[in-house]
Amino acid sequence: MSEWKQKRFWTDATAVETDDGFAIELDGRRVKTPAKAGLILPTRAMAEAAAAEWEAQEGVVNPLSMPVTRSANAAIDKVRIQHAEVADMLAAYGDCDLLCYRADQPSELVARQAELWNPALAWAREALGVRLETHTGVLHVPQDPEALECLSAQVHALDPFHLAAFHDLVSLSGSLVLGFAAARDWRTADEIWTLSRLDELWQEEQWGADDEAQAMAGIKRDAFLHAKRFFDLA
């Protein structure tokens, strides 16, 4: 038996202000999340972006074409309920941040990592108030507990919608520092994404590009850019 799929039944999708924020109405009927909670969004900009996704649907509804709605659903149904657990998981990236683990050879890669990653760590000292130490090799070397506590507090301070976006900024880049850098507009999201792929791009230069790996990288890049957009909409 084929899976049931929702078809468009509405004429107009609109963003409306409520006592708690902004809702999406389909011909006057409020949209709910998959867990049947009210889809109440924190800003008009986010609500209008979500309403535009619903308005663009034709025939069978395609959730994959509705990234703002899907991220909002995740913020309400998952992140809001497990806020502390999600924040703890993301804060833990600070103790094994991508930017802190450096190659010891070849010299060209060592130099490139220093040139491109050191400015991000310098920004973290200024903007986040933490100093993270770099190491060569892949074995875990713990960071200063006070620095990690400072980073954790800043992650926990994010509301569910920002935290939902921040989850993807960090997990896709592999770096808590780059996640904060994207969220706080240190550089463009595209530039920061490229920084997160420094090692992969180096390998491509040496051995050539793999079509499947490039396709996957493209999917992840799109998800990273969407996460930044959703963070800003929140």
Score class of each variant (00 low, 15 high):
79 V>L: 11
69 T>F: 08
109 L>G: 02
10 W>K: 00
77 D>F: 01
45 A>G: 01
76 I>P: 00
63 P>T: 05
126 E>R: 12
46 M>P: 00
31 V>F: 11
138 V>Y: 11
99 L>P: 03
17 E>N: 05
62 N>V: 13
100 C>V: 06
82 Q>R: 15
109 L>Y: 05
41 L>V: 09
50 A>F: 06
90 L>W: 09
20 D>P: 04
36 K>R: 15
112 R>E: 15
124 A>R: 00
10 W>P: 00
119 P>N: 01
33 T>D: 00
72 A>C: 10
45 A>W: 04
132 L>P: 00
94 G>W: 01
113 Q>H: 08
116 L>I: 13
34 P>S: 03
27 D>F: 04
99 L>S: 14
129 G>Q: 03
41 L>W: 03
39 L>F: 02
98 L>A: 11
86 V>I: 11
28 G>Y: 05
56 A>E: 14
26 L>D: 01
29 R>G: 12
53 E>W: 09
58 E>H: 12
139 L>T: 08
28 G>D: 13
73 N>S: 14
139 L>C: 09
21 G>C: 14
124 A>Y: 00
59 G>C: 05
25 E>S: 08
13 A>D: 06
62 N>E: 14
62 N>T: 14
53 E>A: 11
58 E>A: 13
90 L>G: 10
77 D>I: 11
38 G>L: 08
34 P>A: 02
86 V>Q: 02
128 L>D: 01
39 L>M: 03
139 L>G: 12
87 A>E: 11
30 R>W: 12
120 A>M: 10
31 V>D: 08
95 D>M: 02
12 D>F: 10
132 L>M: 06
70 R>Y: 15
99 L>D: 12
35 A>D: 15
57 Q>V: 04
118 N>F: 06
32 K>E: 06
31 V>T: 09
100 C>G: 02
20 D>M: 08
125 R>A: 07
102 R>I: 11
130 V>H: 04
127 A>L: 07
82 Q>C: 08
43 T>K: 05
119 P>R: 14
125 R>V: 06
47 A>R: 00
27 D>E: 12
42 P>R: 05
83 H>Y: 01
123 W>Y: 00
107 S>W: 15
119 P>V: 02
117 W>Q: 12
48 E>P: 00
115 E>Q: 13
113 Q>I: 03
85 E>H: 12
90 L>T: 08
79 V>R: 12
99 L>M: 09
59 G>R: 02
53 E>R: 05
87 A>F: 12
30 R>I: 13
103 A>Y: 11
62 N>C: 09
43 T>N: 03
65 S>M: 15
44 R>M: 08
64 L>W: 13
93 Y>C: 04
44 R>K: 14
24 I>L: 01
107 S>V: 11
66 M>A: 06
51 A>M: 02
21 G>S: 09
82 Q>T: 15
48 E>G: 02
32 K>Q: 06
41 L>P: 02
17 E>Q: 14
120 A>R: 06
37 A>F: 06
57 Q>T: 04
126 E>S: 05
22 F>E: 04
17 E>H: 09
22 F>K: 03
9 F>Y: 13
60 V>A: 05
109 L>P: 01
71 S>V: 07
32 K>C: 15
39 L>E: 01
102 R>L: 15
13 A>M: 10
35 A>L: 10
134 T>L: 10
25 E>C: 08
21 G>Q: 00
68 V>D: 08
90 L>D: 06
21 G>K: 01
122 A>V: 15
105 Q>R: 11
97 D>R: 00
